[in-house]
């Protein structure tokens, strides 16, 4: 039984220039206690997926065309704002991409953590503040700094505060949207290690969104590769990293330089992601794929099982296994 089950999620952004197809039928499952990595290029729809789970799509432009997101047997997309407010923070929490902008500059960090506690637990302000101080200690910031404002913290510390806010109410599911992208490499390692520790401590499931395959390898149990708003391959971390099947996944891996070879130029995937307002009819990757045939351009491939719990969306794998219905 999946803990979080996303079924055929399709999300558009309606803009003045046209309709942006951000997510085009995403199916994902997250099991209890596991970490699922979500990998993809900028603009592939990673953040849209995260915001959609939280119910934080921009009200004016975001539009959910179809799909269901089941959490604990209930469809999050059908919930009222009131119900959603009870879920947010207490059951599902989110760590945002940019710690520089995701904290309110005019409130102390202690207040901002305590607010999360007070939203969900019926407690007094000083109890909530005490809890906030505990959370700060937990993420490695001295409790005395609870009265400081965000501008008095460094980037890495701000991200710790953001993590403390997310974990303040022991959520069962944590969405981390590129939690380390804005941090430098040494701080990245510290923050990731801390997140792993806390995850183990609280038995939290996690959706880790990143474009860094190294981060995925170290932290995730399973990984899903997303391209132009569509999952193109997913499976266990070992299966995907050692036996990747989709040409896009292969391209991603071969664009990482190998330390044992001498590399003078990087090997990127040629071409650009297709314009999300005007996606190709068939396989979304056909414009950049070296194996693309006429069929790829006309027909949309389905996910094919290529191994135990390992799926890829490519006609090349068609003979190998059963098509997901």
């Amino acid at each position: 039984m999946a803990f979080l089950d996303i079924k055929d999620l399709q999300v558009d952004y309606v803009t003045e220039d046209g309709v942006v197809h951000a997510l085009n039928g995403v199916d994902l499952e997250v099991m209890e206690g596991e970490t699922l990595g979500l990998v993809g290029e900028t603009g592939a729809g990673k953040t849209t997926l995260a915001k959609c789970i939280m119910g934080l799509l921009p009200q004016r432009t975001g539009r959910i065309r179809s799909g269901e997101i089941y959490y604990d047997g209930k469809d999050l997309l059908k919930m009222s704002l009131k119900e959603m407010q009870k879920i947010r923070g207490a059951h599902i929490a989110m760590i945002f991409q940019d710690p520089m902008t995701s904290l309110n500059p005019v409130l102390t960090v202690g207040d901002q953590i305590a607010e999360a506690v007070q939203n969900h637990e019926n407690c007094k302000r000083d109890e909530a503040m005490k809890r906030a101080e505990e959370m700060l200690e937990l993420v490695g910031i001295p409790a005395e700094r609870a009265g400081d404002y965000p501008h008095q913290f460094s980037g890495g510390m701000k991200q710790r505060v953001v993590i403390a806010i997310a974990l303040a109410c022991n959520p069962k599911f944590l969405i981390a949207d590129e939690p380390t992208t804005a941090l430098d490499v040494t701080i990245q390692a510290q923050v990731l290690e801390m997140m792993q520790d806390l995850k183990r401590k609280f038995h939290t499931s996690m959706l880790l969104i990143t474009h860094d395959l190294g981060v995925v390898a170290q932290n995730c149990d399973r990984v899903a590769v997303i391209y132009a708003g569509e999952v193109v391959e997913y499976g266990g971390i070992f299966d995907v990293f050692k036996g990747m099947r989709h040409p896009y996944t292969k391209g991603l891996f071969s664009s990482i330089p190998q330390i044992q070879n001498e590399v003078t130029r990087l090997a990127p995937i040629p071409g650009m992601m297709p314009d999300p307002m005007d996606l190709p009819e068939g396989c979304k990757f056909c414009t950049r794929c070296q194996h693309a045939t006429q069929r790829c351009r006309e027909e949309h491939p389905q996910l094919v099982q290529v191994g135990e719990g390992h799926w890829a969306r490519c006609f090349l794998c068609e003979q190998e296994g059963k098509v997901k219905e």
């Binding site: 915001k51 407010q85 947010r88 923070g89 929490a93 904290l103 901002q112 607010e115 997310a166």
Partner: peptide, 25 residues
């Protein structure tokens, strides 16, 4: 601003977001 989303993600009620997070800034 991003911090408004952070506040929503904590489950803060909309009225409190307006007064505490938006208006003060």
């Amino acid at each position: 601003q991003d911090y408004v989303d952070t506040a929503r993600a904590k489950g803060t009620p909309e009225s409190k977001i307006t007064s505490r997070h938006m208006l003060r800034n």
